[in-house]
């Protein structure tokens, strides 16, 4: 049981995932490190196309192949490298120890199977229960996410968007996973429903001591739910810090930019200060630091030199030449 007692649950080292297409190689994830302890929640924040979803699919080894390919790195989960596991071993982990909630509840459920069947399936696979017992447990899971158990025999189209996302959450939590990956779980929902779903996830996470990676582009959601934050840009993690550190003392110019894009009620500002320019094309990333074309602090050296990770202490890490003492802040 020594493995279960260690604090560390997930340790991703130098993970690289590319999509190799005829039109060029999409460099989706470029050497990222993520470290997560049991029961902790990490917010993975970044713009659309930063490689967040690819990272998540990479952890479950569900990157569509072809064209996607995990080119290198290690993903240690409970001390074992997931990239070295066989497909059969991975199937025992998916939905059981690691489960995932996808972005769009409208399309994540199979339209021709009842919600009860869809929840029961994951229970049958991993807990070896018979069909009847699994359905009974599925009903309990439905009750837990706030849906009457007797609706288990209904089909997804008979539920609203928020309800469907609850069903998806019930599927993800049915086998009491160690790690839950939630890929923008509230983006497709109405604002009022968003708050409900977040509350629900927060409560269930505490109840079951589940660690979570919450993928989002919404810093408000991060502030509400996360213990620590990783900021992702063009397939790299440019800054990691505890929630307090990141909000009070952001270091990376990109993180500054993200905060500048949020309206602030307390300050009187004429207009928002969004980050100039667009995310670079991942088939053709700029040389040096990938953020340099949009960076207000960029110097000539940023075009050539790739920044290394600088540890600022207390788990606060940043990838910027400013903190290597090469560029003036």
């Amino acid at each position: 049981m020594s493995k279960a007692e260690t604090k560390e649950l997930l340790n991703i080292k130098n993970l690289t995932i590319h999509y190799i297409t005829e039109d060029g190689t999409v460099k989706a994830v470029n050497g990222i490190d993520i470290q997560l302890n049991r029961g902790e929640t990490l917010g993975l924040v970044g713009e659309t196309g930063a490689g967040k979803t690819t990272t998540a699919l990479g952890i479950l080894r569900l990157v569509p192949n072809p064209p996607g390919k995990i080119l290198g790195g290690e993903i240690f989960f409970e001390g074992e490298d997931l990239l070295k596991k066989s497909e059969v071993e991975m199937r025992h982990i998916r939905g059981n120890k690691i489960s995932m909630i996808f972005q769009d509840p409208m399309t994540s459920l199979n339209p021709v199977l009842t919600v009860g069947e869809q929840i029961a399936e994951v229970i049958q696979i991993h807990e070896g229960l018979g069909k009847q017992d699994a359905i009974e447990k599925a009903k309990k899971m439905l009750e837990m996410v706030g849906i009457p158990g007797n609706r288990h025999s209904e089909y997804p189209h008979q539920f609203s968007g928020g309800m469907k996302q609850r069903v998806v959450i019930a599927i993800a939590l049915a086998c009491n996973p160690q790690l839950l990956i939630a890929d923008e779980p509230t983006t497709a929902l109405d604002v009022t429903i968003q708050a409900q779903v977040l509350d629900l996830m927060n409560n269930l996470k505490k109840e079951f001591q589940t660690a979570m990676i919450l993928i989002t582009h919404d810093l408000g959601v991060v502030a509400e739910v996360c213990d620590k934050v990783a900021i992702m840009y063009a397939g790299e993690i440019v800054e990691t810090a505890s929630l307090e550190d990141l909000f009070e003392n952001p270091k990376h110019p990109y993180t500054w930019g993200l905060f500048g894009s949020i309206p602030n009620l307390e300050e009187e500002v004429e207009r928002l200060n969004p980050i100039k320019g667009l995310m670079p094309d991942p088939t053709n990333l700029p040389s040096g630091c990938p953020f340099h074309p949009r960076c207000p602090k960029a110097a000539d050296v940023c075009k050539k030199q790739m920044p290394k990770t600088t540890d600022l202490g207390n788990g606060h890490k940043v990838r910027c030449l400013i903190y290597e003492g090469i560029v003036k802040a």
Partner: peptide, 14 residues
């Protein structure tokens, strides 16, 4: 290619 097929795979379905 649908999302619900990805969901099924993420559940550990063979």
């Amino acid at each position: 290619r649908q999302d619900y097929i990805r969901t099924a795979r993420a559940k550990g379905v063979n």
